[in-house]
Design a protein around this nucleic acid. Structure first.
Lengths: 231, 231
DNA sequence: CGTTGTGAAATGATTCACAGCT
DNA sequence: AGCTGTGAATCATTTCACAACG
């Protein structure tokens, strides 16, 4: 709706923070919240909060603030989590298994619809309620089950190859845990998590003695150099 | 050394990318690389690469480029990974176990010196070569083993409490996997990984049809709203 | 020549500050 | 009175473009 005057990347990242904070306010039965209050909770200015939200519509009520429930719903719509996303985890190593068992994903609307591995010892076994499939089955299963998001947790050496396979199977987004920069068509969204890089960032901050002066601390996640590769 | 004219946060995040790319060039025996070439590899402009590096010193050779080995060493020094950091993993749930078994951390200079959990069934057992300790032992062990970085992988409800405990034990940096915003003294560095937020960001990108127009894709990691909370 | 390092210009993001709604 | 939405101002980051160097 509202045209779309070009949304800053940082704004998009903050949307998830707003959503999480608001969801936690929802249980206690909180009805409304002002930009100032929400900002204080997250270490942001009130203007920042208002401007961020205003990119997507007029959700606030002058004199009142924002209605928590309404805003939660709007944010879910914006982020695309007002529906269930079918996902698959590929690679049943340490990280793949951990992710597969991570219950919260399900609750947040990300359903694990299939899991894969190449290890013959694992294929055919059941892990956290999921049957482990071979990579040969990846394409047919992705298509049949309409899996749109892939969680890539294979070793670095295999990452690019498996990512290509997923793309061929029609995946639209990949959450990449492998420490490599994936090269994929622009039509595929990529978000990467690089554990060692996160620790490097932490080591840097610690070395500095400081911890980031404000907007810094926390969520060491997005904002990366590459366009497509890993995060 | 060079004064320190205020280093942009994005620059610091990119340092890890430069390092990883350069390390991968090192094995094949690559001797030098120009800012242009390095930038192409990472989806950055040559000017960006030069400016980033120039914040920390003059590492390049006009007409030649940068010497790969030398730059790797410099970057490690800058990031603080030219030494071994003693870390501890607290929380032996899915994520804690995965991280504990993740070999690459060790190779990148992050030594796991102790692991902890509250579950009586786990305490005393050995996991990936590490003895599982109780939280009562946390403070003495952190101090005795000079642990400076903590990997926090406990349930959301316990995260703040355990983080406080680590700070009391002298930790200087925390890599937080719990989906909460930690409130700690400014002297403690925090980097957070929020799986569900990463997936939300991915869902958003997919919903948009686009994948980020350039600097976007990849490394969905840093750049967060909060100063201190989680990532 | 090719390539760095770096001021100056351009672009992007945040904060200010205030008119307008309830 | 309290609070939103938003243009204008400020601040941050990136890109340009070029002098200097090997």
């Amino acid at each position: 709706m509202t045209s779309q005057p070009k949304i800053p990347r940082p704004t998009i990242r903050r949307l998830s923070f707003y959503l999480r904070e608001l969801e936690s306010l929802l249980e206690p039965g909180r009805k409304t919240i002002s930009s100032r209050q929400l900002g204080d909770l997250l270490g942001l200015t009130d203007a920042q909060v208002r401007k961020d939200l205003a990119y997507f519509g007029q959700f606030g009520y002058p004199g009142v603030g924002y209605r928590v429930l309404e805003l939660v719903e709007e944010l879910r719509k914006i982020l695309g989590t007002d529906r269930v996303w079918k996902t698959a985890v590929v690679g049943m190593g340490n990280i793949g298994r951990a992710v597969t068992r991570y219950k919260r994903l399900q609750r947040k609307g990300f359903e694990i619809a299939a899991i894969f591995d190449t290890d013959p010892a694992l294929v055919g076994t059941v892990l956290a309620g999921h049957h482990v499939h071979t990579l040969e089955e990846l394409k047919p299963i992705f298509q049949e089950r309409d899996i749109k998001i892939g969680l890539l947790a294979v070793p670095a050496e295999a990452a690019q190859e498996v990512a290509d396979l997923m793309v061929e199977a029609g995946v639209q987004g990949i959450l990449n845990f492998a420490p490599v920069r994936l090269k994929l068509a622009d039509s595929v969204a990529i978000v990467s998590v690089h554990l060692t890089m996160l620790l490097e960032q932490l080591a840097f901050k610690v070395s500095l003695g400081l911890t980031g002066s404000r907007d810094d601390r926390e969520s060491e996640q997005d904002a990366d150099p590459n366009s497509q590769p890993t995060v």
